[in-house]
């Protein structure tokens, strides 16, 4: 699968918003409220998993995507998709749960939207089910919810940063 080729193709074929290059953090922070609402809808309360809001997944999400170790093309894809989603669903933040669901189901009808939401979910799952040191899986709450646990020993820092630059 030509992942990056796909991303570029879908950008040129489906694009509705022309993006200027933006620093990663700025591009994400600008839509923090939208992403937070989206994550809250994807990972709601009263589910088998702790909710995104309860875990503070938004902080992990922005930090993870902006981190230098994150694939730069996927970062661009996420930022690009966020811009498009903001354009597609301008009142998403204030919409009720049913309206949010309708927006999302319509957005994933095309290939780009489907892949963007999938990518957002996977990054969120990294936070929810990753080591608690990354901040989102607070106290291992999500591991407990699934009756599982991460490996031992646990990391002493994020992204092996405690070791300095390894490679």
């Amino acid at each position: 699968m030509k992942r990056r080729t796909f991303i570029l193709l879908s950008t040129s074929l489906v694009a509705t918003v022309k993006l200027q290059p933006t620093p990663a953090l700025k591009g994400l922070s600008k839509h923090r409220a939208l992403l937070e609402a989206l994550l809250a809808h994807l990972f709601p309360p009263h589910s088998a998993l702790p909710s995104a809001k309860e875990l503070g997944v938004i902080d992990f999400f922005i930090e993870a995507v902006a981190h230098p170790s994150f694939d730069r093309d996927i970062r661009r894809f996420i930022i690009d998709g966020t811009e498009r989603f903001a354009h597609f669903a301008p009142d998403f933040i204030k919409a009720n749960a049913d309206a949010k669901e309708r927006y999302l189901r319509r957005f994933v009808k095309n290939d780009f939207g489907d892949r963007w939401v999938a990518r957002v979910m996977i990054v969120a799952l990294e936070g929810i089910l990753g080591d608690p040191i990354y901040g989102a899986n607070r106290g291992g709450a999500a591991w407990r919810a699934l009756h599982t646990r991460g490996g031992s020993p646990r990391p002493k820092g994020k992204y092996l940063e405690e070791l300095g630059k390894i490679v």
Partner: peptide, 14 residues
Amino acid sequence: AFSKDEIAYCRRDI
């Protein structure tokens, strides 16, 4: 220093 950090070892090029 080897931990079982899935994010660092398995989901990034570190």
